[in-house]
Design a protein around this nucleic acid. Structure first.
Lengths: 174, 174
DNA sequence: AGAATTTAGTTCACCAGTGAAATATGAATT
DNA sequence: AATTCATATTTCACTGGTGAACTAAATTCT
């Protein structure tokens, strides 16, 4: 796998040269944009790699974590789609996969029988409790050398960025 | 498309509840991790959306931009793989697509005939110069409300995070 | 020089995810 | 009761990307 540092160096040079040719290019913002994309993608790859031994992919993992973190351990496909940013087509497949492994159960809701009720099983909970702790050291190592202030700042800036992105999406839609 | 703000609120609650059950969970780092993944993914979606009218996907765009930003406008598949973080298989397909549209040219290298020389064409340059400027407002809007300090901080923190990720990958490999 | 190894790219078969359309069913509105 | 709307699933065709096997050229090692 290529070094992120190298990719970043390449990008800095590249954007620098582009900026000379296209003076009104917002170089600083473009750089931040590319940084986010690169680092985000690399984190995703890392996570996917971590999950592989457990035979899970990112969206299955996320689905399971949402269910686990729910007070009642349950949700509906639609809601899971929303919070995992997955399409319903894919959520059906994710559900199939997790049901087959016995980590979740799927049944019709009592009140509204259009709805499907998805619930994490006892085995699912055990699975999460077993697979999660070994991931902690890696997550901590990612932020090695980050002061408490650094972490607060990063959190603040990412949330601010998220808000701007939501605003952009809202503008597009209208 | 679901609101990022909602997803983030969900995550904050979820990680909070998990933290009660699993006290040694590194909640702050996990939150930062998820924030990066969510915001990164959303930026990726936005970019993909922006590129769709031009019939390009992210990796084709990136490939083209790297070539454009090169002093001599040329590179090799292997090098492009490295900096786009793509596999060679996929780079072959990207090349096919861009050649078919006349945006790049592909030929055997004179010195080393295993190598393939990829070069952006005049049409490719015109294409970039035409499609790029309309993207600037969006990039600027992403960082609306970011002070100069905010931007510097974010850049610093992302680069730091990148360094840690490289370190982790290096450790894994050894 | 000749064999073995390494490097660069391509081809092929596959997987994960998407978007659209069809189906089914229940809920809400009138 | 009929219409409209909401929820979920399935199927199908498609995109983007990957791993494994393969080809060809160059480099290294006797």
């Amino acid at each position: 796998m290529a070094d992120l540092g190298d990719c970043i160096a390449m990008m800095d040079e590249g954007i620098g040269r582009m900026h000379e040719v296209i003076p009104h290019l917002p170089a600083e913002q473009a750089t931040l944009c590319r940084l986010m994309l690169m680092v985000g993608a690399r984190m995703d790859e890392g996570l996917e790699e971590t999950l592989k031994p457990h035979q899970l992919n990112h969206s299955e993992f996320l689905t399971l974590m949402i269910l686990y973190s729910r007070p009642d351990g349950s949700s509906s496909p639609g809601e899971l789609c929303e919070f995992t940013s997955q399409g319903s087509t894919n959520m059906t497949r994710i559900g199939n996969a997790l049901v087959k492994r016995g980590l979740i159960s799927r049944g019709a809701s009592a009140e509204d029988r259009r709805r499907v009720l998805i619930r994490i099983t006892a085995a699912g909970r055990r699975f999460v409790l077993k697979m999660l702790p070994p991931m902690f050291p890696r997550v901590e190592a990612m932020f090695a050398g980050f002061s408490a202030t650094d972490r607060r700042q990063l959190s603040r800036l990412l949330r601010k960025l998220a808000k701007n992105l939501d605003q952009l999406d809202a503008d597009d839609a209208s």
